[in-house]
């Protein structure tokens, strides 16, 4: 099952109305300049309290039926998904091991064959539901602030 890119783009654009000011207020750079039906990705630069930067790509294909695939890249987006690009404290797969990340599911190589993609709005153990792009950004921001540095 998939979602028409126009439908995903509409949902993403609607949610960015909250996510963009939230990111700006939190001091996070959000780049949605390439966002369109042909490219449903946007990017956020997070940082920990020591000022180490982490570059995250949100690939929102099939959103909002399925969650975004969140991956850490290097600054130029030419490398991705390796431990040295991840903040320490995240799952060593490596991945952001939350229901809101498609990479956490087995179909994307993640550890969770016990989760169903369509249930991505449900709570991840130890917390409540994280249901929107702005809430995802908030959750990641808080965890990355506390990160001691790079994973590898």
């Amino acid at each position: 099952m998939s979602v028409e890119p126009a439908v995903s783009l509409d949902a993403i654009t609607t949610e960015l109305a909250d996510a963009v000011p939230y990111a700006a207020s939190a001091g996070l750079a959000l780049d949605a300049s390439a966002l369109g039906e042909g490219d449903l990705r946007f990017y956020i630069t997070f940082h920990n309290r020591a000022g180490v930067k982490f570059y995250a790509e949100f690939d929102c294909r099939d959103y909002p039926l399925y969650p975004p695939t969140i991956e850490f890249t290097n600054e130029t987006r030419t490398a991705r998904g390796i431990p040295s690009l991840y903040p320490g404290g995240f799952h060593p797969t490596p991945c952001v091991c939350m229901r809101y990340n498609r990479k956490a599911y087995t179909e994307r190589g993640g550890p969770h064959g016990d989760w169903r993609l369509v249930d991505w709005h449900l709570a991840t153990p130890g917390g409540g539901p994280i249901e929107t792009l702005a809430m995802i950004i908030s959750d990641m921001h808080t965890k990355i602030l506390d990160s001691p540095g790079r994973m590898g």
Binding site: Y22, S25, M98, T124, G126, G127, H141
Partner: peptide, 12 residues
């Protein structure tokens, strides 16, 4: 003064 309310979920 501008403050930010952070919402943090669980961890798997």
């Amino acid at each position: 003064t501008l403050l930010v309310l952070s919402v943090q979920g669980g961890n798997a």
